[in-house]
Design a binder for these strands. Sequence first.
DNA 1: TGATCGCTATACATTTTCGTATGACTGGCC
DNA 2: GGCCAGTCATACGAAAATGTATAGCGATCA
Lengths: 300, 300
Amino acid sequence: MTGPGWHLYRSFLAVMRVGSLSGAARTLRIAQPTLGRHVNQLEHTLGSPLFTRSPQGLTPTDLALALLPEAEAMESASHALSRVASGAMASDAGIVRITASEIVGAEILPAILAGLRMTHPRLAFELVLSNRTEDLLRRDADIAVRMVRPVQEALVAKSVGRIKLGLYARRDYLDRNGTPANFEELERHALIGFDRQTLSARSLGDLPSWAVRENFALRTDSDLAQLAAIRAGYGIGVCQVPIAKRDPALIRVLAGAFEVWLDTWIVMHENLRASRRVRLVFDHLGQELQRLIVSAHGRR
Amino acid sequence: MTGPGWHLYRSFLAVMRVGSLSGAARTLRIAQPTLGRHVNQLEHTLGSPLFTRSPQGLTPTDLALALLPEAEAMESASHALSRVASGAMASDAGIVRITASEIVGAEILPAILAGLRMTHPRLAFELVLSNRTEDLLRRDADIAVRMVRPVQEALVAKSVGRIKLGLYARRDYLDRNGTPANFEELERHALIGFDRQTLSARSLGDLPSWAVRENFALRTDSDLAQLAAIRAGYGIGVCQVPIAKRDPALIRVLAGAFEVWLDTWIVMHENLRASRRVRLVFDHLGQELQRLIVSAHGRR
DNA sequence: TGATCGCTATACATTTTCGTATGACTGGCC
DNA sequence: GGCCAGTCATACGAAAATGTATAGCGATCA
């Protein structure tokens, strides 16, 4: 009827991650026999074994592998619940979990969050850097910064403008290799691009003809690695204009020919409207991002 | 650190729904003092009261209202977990939870599921009739029948063709009021349409000029009520062609002028790929829907 | 080959949680 | 006004879950 208690699945998750009863018991700070009983009980109610025991530890069965993502989803929900409950009384205390792309999360958010924490020192943040768009509905995060317009009805979305993308290289690279004047010349250069076609690459729409995998002299799906390569003078790559402007050594190339805009949204789950803490962060994030974008594009 | 146990929130949910400790205890089949202790403990760990007690029952505070959707999300995850675990060993036993639009769920699915249950009598189904598209990611259902192409990466989607929509009325209504020959004449008729603009109405794209709220002689957002009104001879309304064909009394009007196609998808969560039971239903549903659609449009 | 380390499984005392019984209170109804 | 049906709160014995201590087993290494 009403499924097994949550603590059974918590123990199950720990065993799946650690691989042994003893180790899992240590991480959960409970006794090992307790954990063993939990697993036994879960197996008993399910009617099938979850692990094959051995003196070296426990190895999961197919059933355990099938159950894993579901148990993880429940864990996400549990964490979300704890977050909402955490600073429920005070409006400016508690945890806010934010997801964003790697670039935004590493280059833009830290400064904004630092400012926010100056005025609200009781806030704490959790950052999840990923390009998956489903984090909010699964409640893996409270707030998301996304480059695509959200379509789900249960989400509260706010547009913060469009971020411009441009091609950049470090000054000394261009001094050594020359500055390309058109797309044809680009192919002779050390291009930095994606490895497999990632979501962030796809979101740019149809790719120009030179932007194919074979032309890239450095291929990686990590946007941060691409940025680092540009900064290291490796070659020419795509970079967000507001970020590139902070580094005087980075020079924009083919400014007239290559210019792409990324629609930027900040999104939160509808349920969190009532949480003043999340709203506070949501509003602040919206203001700062908006300010950042218009100021960067104002003095272009 | 690790939030309060799930049983506390389960008790919390029951109290929120029933409104009293005693009543909630009855629904959960536990003792009333136990439930009271649960609520007390939850309030203690949160640091704030959740309810204001009175001899008439408990009324929730703002904090309780904020926590409610989160706790419900966790309940959904818990149910999904139980479903996956339920018939884990056998491939054709257990519960499969399906969500679909009202029309599909009430007019099309029952027959298909009945056939499936003939060959697999140990299957059980749960039907959720709603037009919300987020049910799958929130794990409110295992399988969804949707009229929009899913965009989330975590979903496995299969197209089953396009369902045709047409304007229909019962024969005797047309005998009494005449058959419209063009859209202008349509406005003199008893039109059946939406009340507020619903999602299913919006998914049709831009609406024709006569399809505005003011022209409707019966306004409801329930697709089932619209269908019932057509069948009752109330007037002219939109109906799926495969469904209308089953009722000889329903006559299509303006067949050449009004014709809209609904892309139809059947979707399941990626996590459930390993579940043979869900796959079984997924495949069967896909086959039957596909068969239904092509046969209906073949002998048009 | 014997010592050691890590693992799981069992035995028993302890703590926590739960259920039954009961008291105290409020509101409606005759 | 007094009775009754409903509520929440408290007391105490019963049941369940947990922790400590220990035995048994396999792998590794000198």
